[in-house]
Amino acid sequence: MTGARIPAVVVADIRKSYGELKAVDGVSFTVAEGEFFGILGPNGAGKTTTLEIVEGLRKPDGGQVTLLGEQPWPRNPKLLPRIGVQLQASSFFEKLTAREQLQTFGSLYGVSRRTADEMLELVGLTDKADVQENKLSGGQRQRLSIACALVHDPDLVFLDEPTAALDPQARRNLWDVLRAIQARGKTIVYTTHYLDEAEILCDRVAIMDRGRILAMDAPATLVRGLDAPTHVVLQKGLLTREAARGITGVEDAHEDEVSLTISTRKPAPVLSALAERGTLDGLQVRTATLEDVFLDLTGREYRA
């Protein structure tokens, strides 16, 4: 094949209102094949509605969606085998074991029953194959529901808040699964309200708030574009606030009960000055994160 490859997802100016509330208010983005794309924002930002319109579960009031060159709305049976969707609630059949869930969902796509075991291995649930879905832990259920979305080997995968309500260890296990899926060459579009997670996983992110996309780029680019100071945190008592302010390159310094935090845009000379003073014990360096980007864009602290 020669020529430009068509993008996996093209969303152009979609809109959806519920009465007065503009849930999605002119959202546009494009996702390239093989890309890991995140839609971020606090609860109620319009992430899920956006995703549902893109998946073809909802009709937008306006705008256009194209997936792999096809329209998802109205229900397009030609497109369905090529997309995999994990819904926000874990949707399973009653009383079936993990393997049976995968076999049943697989059969809807004409997939052989053996695929179920491959999927269990992919998401690390091989030893839970014969456990009923309702007896799995939250993280295991999430991994199973992702496996159900992947059972027919789709090109394009949509995941809605896959890591919501998981403990930190389960979240990290799931990250490995998501990376493994991307390594298989799938295009992934996912929503999350964990900005730190998106920063680690995504090639590109769109930050949403109140139905609109506020910024869209690679996480590192967004953070760099902020021109935000780096924070150096020291144990309290190693250095006075005044002494810290005296160091060249330090913009500000403030103290709380346990630590002294120095803000600087030139961390290298500041760190060597601190090293000369012998105050590196327990030192932490914090660069800006997507949360700072959100604060900068909306003027308010990020609250998931």
Binding site: L57, P81, V85, L87
Partner: peptide, 9 residues
């Protein structure tokens, strides 16, 4: 589950 089935061919 209904929505999930609807998204299957």
């Amino acid at each position: 589950v209904l929505r999930r089935i609807r998204l299957a061919p």
